[in-house]
Design a protein around this nucleic acid. Structure first.
Lengths: 356, 356
DNA sequence: CTGTTAGCGCCTTCAG
DNA sequence: CTGAAGGCGCTAACAG
């Protein structure tokens, strides 16, 4: 009801002690039982809440850590976040998440403000890395751990995965299961993941001797979302449909699971069966990959593991700001599911959903 | 490199002016062009970054707003978050997201710390509402808007949806499309959404004259996730499978889309066709509902709309702290997709995905 | 054990 | 237009 918020001064006044004593009583420092009781009572009566800002200013820390991502809508980041959260909460930190959007400039702004006071440390997983962003991360007032690729010279703690190799695993798996004409649905090429996956695909395509038309079998989605994946798949599939209606592609690799979901939807729309007519493999091995219909074969990029490692690096640096920057790599692995079941055999009954 | 962060004092010193002048120059207050230039140069050279904590303490605000949810993994909250973000960023606020976990006690702690300094306002969507939480929200130092149901007497700004009626829409839709034996997959009953949906189902079940066994056709999932939905569905379907293998249920309503996805997976596992043998309807009308296979009929609860309204309420209260608390309701609506296509007709070709 | 004093980094009157 | 001084709310020295 009162328009003014009670401050420690008011509590002390009501309790009949000094502000210092009130502070001590509330924070469990040395104080007489009587003082503690009086102060506690006064605080309760006034509904006193310590001002976090003032406290941080004095203490020099906020006990908050931040996790910044371009797009919280991506399940990968949710997994990462959970892992980070579970690590840092064990050390008494609270985790704040910030979705910055695709614009690197906005990310810079976020780092600037967040890294100076509101948080004691930052884990960031940027999709687009500009020189300006790197510079900002280096001069940030608090420790920063980057999930993703960054030039070694940046001198920052880093956790990354070898997504190029991940694409290689996908190509290999498709080859082994009898696919020959593999298309690739990438995300935007100006993103770090997009660029890395492209490199991986081009290399694997060449090594597997799949032909010279590596450019023709690629399609770039507008972003890493289901809707964009659907559109890109429709475009790519349309482009490779022969006049007689047969398809020149028998497999699709998607840059992430969301794009893969969109691609499967698109395939069904144009009358293709997955996996009989078209195999699809995603990346990230999201929880939904297992529940999608058909189950989505996906390359695990260890999101949870990366999140965990990033959090640990951050905690370690917080404890020892002088330790040399470390860069750790998580290896990808493929998880096979129904979406790439060999075309040779008829559809496995337990995946096609049409018993009898 | 320097171990100490530069403060405004250092900038002023280097620029050869007073701290006050440096502050004015940096913040665009009156200052001579020459001073501005010198201060700017000094700040750049030192890599000066204003301390957000000190700034907030002095100014009395942080220009940050917070959005607290139990589980960021739920796509509903992502949609809400996007809507909130887009509203508040237009007013110069940054949005911080905090995932509190299912424990109400943790939520209380979050509100306590966040609502006192780190953020200027809070939108919270708690799944479990305890008296303690309500009390904490009422005494929060900053304006709070609750997305979800709360006693009127709480005197807080509120945005909610009529999810009970939403369940009613689902029942009605299933009845109209020829389903007679409807099961219900709920989330935990001690959550606000779980309780409301239960009320809605029991009421609609009775009104539709579906029989006296309303308890027998319900199953509670451990939480609002795909995995829990799958388990609950397996349990419910198993319970209603007659000795001769036929199923006593021909439709399932799920408390949210994630549970519905899990249910469809479970149905396929046990050899049922969706929608031919079993219709499934979800709630929330998540983006993925449209892309799932089969497309998931879902009751839209207007998550984006609720987020937008909550953000607007918060902004309005920030502008006028004295305005009377408002409570706005968003009406649900059903979006029909393939998962509830009438069983009478053969599977519609464009949804079954198995052309010829 | 307690009160007084000092200051975290910043912004903003108030004189000059 | 500029500098000096005060204070946001809190905690950590220092005496008493």
């Amino acid at each position: 009801m009162s328009t003014e918020r009670p401050t420690l001064f008011h509590v002390a006044e009501l309790a009949g002690v000094s502000v210092a004593s009130a502070s001590r009583a509330l924070n469990g420092m040395v104080a007489s039982a009587q003082t503690i009781a009086k102060v506690r009572a006064a605080a309760a009566e006034l509904g006193y809440l310590p001002d976090a800002t003032a406290r941080s200013l004095k203490l020099g820390h906020s006990l908050q850590l931040a996790f910044a991502v371009d797009d919280v809508g991506n399940p990968v980041y949710v997994e990462m976040m959970r892992a980070i959260e579970s690590v840092v909460s064990g050390s008494g930190f609270r985790l704040l998440v910030s979705s910055t959007g695709a614009d690197p400039a906005e990310t810079v702004g976020l780092v600037r403000s967040l890294a100076r006071g509101y948080a004691d440390g930052l884990v960031i997983s940027p999709q687009r890395v500009t020189d300006e962003l790197v510079a900002e991360l280096q001069r940030a007032a608090v420790p920063v751990v980057v999930v993703g690729s960054l030039p070694e010279s940046a001198g920052l703690d880093t956790v990354r995965t070898d997504s190029a190799r991940g694409v290689g695993l996908a190509v290999e798996h498709l080859r082994q299961t009898g696919r020959r004409r593999i298309g690739f649905l990438n995300g935007p090429l100006d993103t770090t993941p997009g660029a890395a996956r492209r490199r991986g695909f081009v290399a694997a395509y060449g090594e597997a001797g799949l032909g010279p038309d590596v450019e023709a079998v690629q399609q770039v989605a507008a972003d890493f979302t289901v809707a964009a994946g659907r559109l890109a798949a429709l475009e790519l599939l349309g482009r490779h449909r022969a006049p007689d209606g047969t398809l020149a592609l028998d497999a699709l690799i998607a840059a992430n699971d969301l794009i893969a979901f969109g691609a499967i939807h698109a395939a069904i729309e144009v009358g293709l069966r997955v996996p009989q007519d078209l195999a699809v493999v995603g990346m990230d091995n999201t929880e939904l990959a297992d529940f999608f219909n058909p189950g989505l074969t996906s390359v695990s990029l260890g999101s949870a593991e990366r999140g965990k490692l990033a959090a640990e690096l951050l905690l370690a640096r917080l404890a020892d700001p002088a330790r040399p920057p470390r860069s750790v790599v998580v290896q990808p692995g493929l998880v096979a599911r129904a979406s790439t079941a060999p075309a040779a055999e008829p559809a496995a009954p337990e995946t096609a959903g049409s018993p009898r």
